[in-house]
């Protein structure tokens, strides 16, 4: 049995206190938004997806079975909603992604050469949504591997392996990007 600090708030919402939901939103909006941003790579779209996920959570609150933490259940909704947004707008995103790649290639000079974070974000684009989300949640240090598995719909062992592989891949990408940058100096 999990002692979840969100449960008393959920009981009050279910009893008819709709305004209490604002407190739940304030508690979880940053994580929800971060997950959406990692998946969609587009802030306005992520904001919309995160808001949509909160509304879905509200509408299905009575169905939350309390076997897991509320946050895990909510972030799974955010994850699935963001994936749906991504699929729904796939054509649009495809063209945006292409534009981003062209822009990075042509605009290398304008990039800050020593900004590893920027390179890492660039490398992150090469990972899939589930790996990006798993990696982000892992480093935000809030969730166990089991909870990350719940959110992303993977097995816990698979999550661990994929986080390891993603970090290796990022290290490789970062090395390539930095070597390339050093050569163009």
């Amino acid at each position: 049995m999990i002692l979840d600090p969100d449960l008393p708030l959920i009981d009050r919402i279910l009893a008819g206190e709709q305004n209490v939901f604002a407190e739940l939103i304030n508690r979880h909006k940053q994580y929800a938004y971060t997950i959406a941003v990692k998946i969609l790579q587009n802030r306005p779209e992520a904001e919309e997806a995160a808001q949509d996920a909160f509304i879905k959570a509200y509408q299905n609150l009575a169905g939350f079975n309390r076997q897991a933490r509320f946050s895990t259940w909510l972030y799974r909704i955010v994850f699935n909603t963001s994936i749906s947004y991504k699929r729904k707008n796939n054509k649009v995103f495809q063209s945006i992604e292409n534009t981003v790649i062209v822009y990075n290639h042509e605009g290398e000079v304008s990039l800050e050469k020593t900004d590893k974070t920027r390179y890492l974000n660039q490398a992150m684009m090469k990972l899939n949504e589930a790996d990006r989300t798993a990696l982000t949640l892992f480093y935000l240090d809030e969730f166990s591997l089991d909870e990350i598995a719940d959110i992303t719909g993977m097995q816990a062992n698979t999550v661990k392996v994929r986080i390891h592989r993603a970090r290796q891949r990022l290290a490789d990408e970062l090395k390539i990007l930095l070597n390339h940058e050093a050569l163009t100096l």
């Binding site: 305004n19 994580y31 992520a46 808001q51 909160f54 982000t136 480093y139």
Partner: peptide
């Protein structure tokens, strides 16, 4: 990654969700 921080949604995020509710 260890120094990564959470993304910050818009200031009126909560108000907008509550409005849609």
């Amino acid at each position: 990654f260890q120094h990564a921080s959470l993304a910050e949604p818009s200031r009126d995020f909560t108000a907008r969700v509550m409005q849609k509710l």
